[in-house]
Design a protein around this nucleic acid. Structure first.
Lengths: 342, 342
DNA sequence: ATTAGCACTCGAAGAAGGAGAGTGCTAAAC
DNA sequence: GTTTAGCACTCTCCTTCTTCGAGTGCTAAT
């Protein structure tokens, strides 16, 4: 659909714009890129690219700026040809990934931090709560008065623990019996299934329950009802250095949006349905508040089941090649960790 | 040291400045505050206050702005007389505090969120790792291949769990034996003490250890070495609405500083040594990057031992009365939760 | 088909000039 | 002696105007 020359010029505009913001003029292209064409010719081509919707003029007689579709075209070409990468970045990445491996307890925190440090954009990592998580074992322990400590050991790296309150005190023996029963019955099932089963049982036996069993049922219901996912966000300070973020109100809205972790979570849940790195550019983003930003995300898996995701949020004027590389490598690395430690 | 009239005027300047930034002039004081004095007299007094270091002129022929010492004087007077509070704020606070009580699992996250929502500044909450935490019980469970899940149940609300890697696989029975041994021997001791004892034992028995015991010792050392504290920060988007934060570079430095959780942690550790709400105003702050901001913090305790802290960070032009009220009430509330659930 | 030349456009940056708020000082009033 | 009115002065902020320069689109020449 685009001839080779047009493609080259589009890429040139985008690369210049990424390296420094502000409209790109025809002359600066001839200076930085050795295409054997004069500024006038380039102007004509740029005008064509504008008609096709890949470029845009902020105002008459200004240079051109990429549109979201322009970036989209660029990114698609990029992923097709697997860009060559900065060796320095690669070694830095590998060094930091090893750090993640050694501290499995806070790998999510470390991953988001690492992504933001290397990309200089916002780094995000989440553990997804797909309800497909499988229960390996459950432990119930008396905690304080009228409280029970629950430890859910799942097949993911993250152990969930929770304190729940109960109406009447339950002895350690009863807790052990209950835990034994739950393990025998539910180990190997997904949390979602267990929850459903328990709800059904409560409904059925409502009348004949004696005190302890009803208490036990309430406990189970509590345990398996809402299990939160973890969300880690780093590098908010990084994006403040970018000239793209000179408008405080825009940053505020962005921060406000991502401070609400549910939003991030549901977005990444959708994304992790497909595998490999996903890129959402500006208006492609489903959320209004994020339509001025770009989003590079990839799920990480245990086996073939996605159990979390990592992402980078930055301006649409993003170094996509680098961001995709970072996200892709990191997601694969984490997936590897889960595979080998099986 | 200050006569009554000067005090009133200082308070007037600060209150006007807090309600809207920009130098405060003598005439606006006479308009808003019914002190029976003319602008000229007030000018004279303000000039005196400037000599004493409580006020400052941004430039000749501009109004006055409070200095850090000015705020300090104001805050000291404030805490002495226990300011009367907004009834609406109070009821809102109580409503949200109840939410904290019902969800003990994420009370820190909720507390920081609540503080930022009510104050419109940055809300922070941390659980301190003072090494004085007492071990109630330890559970060891096989996790993945060559990994063990450890659950430390302490006398604080927060259960710490951790996955540690071991060199050789350890059977479930051995883990149970080890856990039993540790519980029998160390339950009731502080984590710090336990760590020291274990290090000493490793040093002593280095030569005679057989494989399993050495492995066990290594595990223990790993468990009790570094246990992280939790830090929750909310409301970064809130402060971006403030006119004080028009300088992006300043915000960036602030965000950069508080994104490094160690900094926050050590600051709050120091603060929680003394009880009751603490206020650090601008330059009183030990950290250079925070010298342009103010810090209101209070520890929460279990019994009399501080086990965490909550705080508000805002501009020096902060509504101190409200911030102190919020922090104080919240800290007391959390302390209460720990006392009653004993 | 490409390129040089040229008139034109538009924003950024700087200069100039009020307007306004507020001060400090002096002299009068209480 | 303290307080106040009056007044000249200062400094910022905002608006307007101008200039400058980068870059375009068009036309004619290559």
């Amino acid at each position: 659909m685009l001839d080779d020359r047009s493609k080259k010029i589009l890429h040139a505009v985008i690369q210049l714009y990424i390296s420094s913001p502000g409209p790109v003029g025809s002359r600066s292209i001839t200076k930085k890129f050795p295409i054997g064409l004069s500024p006038a010719t380039i102007r004509n081509i740029m005008s064509d690219l504008e008609d096709m919707g890949f470029l845009r003029q902020p105002h008459t007689s200004a240079g051109r700026v990429p549109t979201d579709s322009g970036y989209r075209f660029y990114v698609d070409a990029l992923t097709a040809e697997k860009s060559d990468n900065d060796a320095e970045l690669a070694s830095e990445l590998i060094r930091k990934l090893e750090l993640i491996r050694t501290d499995i307890n806070s790998f999510l925190d470390n991953a988001s931090r690492m992504l933001s440090e290397l990309s200089h954009y916002i780094g995000i990592s989440v553990s997804l709560n797909t309800h497909q998580t499988m229960l390996s074992r459950i432990e119930l322990l008396p905690y304080r008065k009228n409280q029970i400590a629950v430890m859910l050991i799942t097949d993911e790296a993250v152990i969930k623990n929770k304190i729940i309150s109960v109406e009447q005190e339950v002895s350690r023996e009863d807790l052990n019996r209950l835990a034994g029963y739950l393990n025998e019955r539910y180990a190997g099932h997904t949390l979602e299934d267990i929850r459903k089963t328990i709800v059904a049982e409560i409904a059925n036996d409502r009348i004949l329950c004696d005190g302890l069993i009803r208490e036990a049922m309430a406990i189970c219901n509590n345990i398996f009802s809402a299990s939160e996912s973890d969300v880690f966000i780093s590098g908010l300070s990084e994006v403040l250095t970018l000239p793209d973020f000179c408008d405080i109100e825009r940053i505020r809205r962005l921060f406000r949006t991502i401070e609400d972790k549910h939003v991030i979570l549901s977005l990444l849940e959708k994304i992790s349905a497909t595998d490999g790195p996903q890129v959402l550019i500006g208006s492609e983003n489903p959320l209004d508040e994020l339509k001025q930003f770009s989003f590079v995300a990839a799920p990480y898996c245990e086996g073939s089941r996605p159990i979390g995701a990592i992402a980078i949020i930055g301006p649409t004027r993003m170094n996509y090649g680098q961001a995709i590389y970072l996200v892709d490598m990191t997601a694969k690395f984490i997936t590897d960790i889960f595979s080998y430690s099986r």
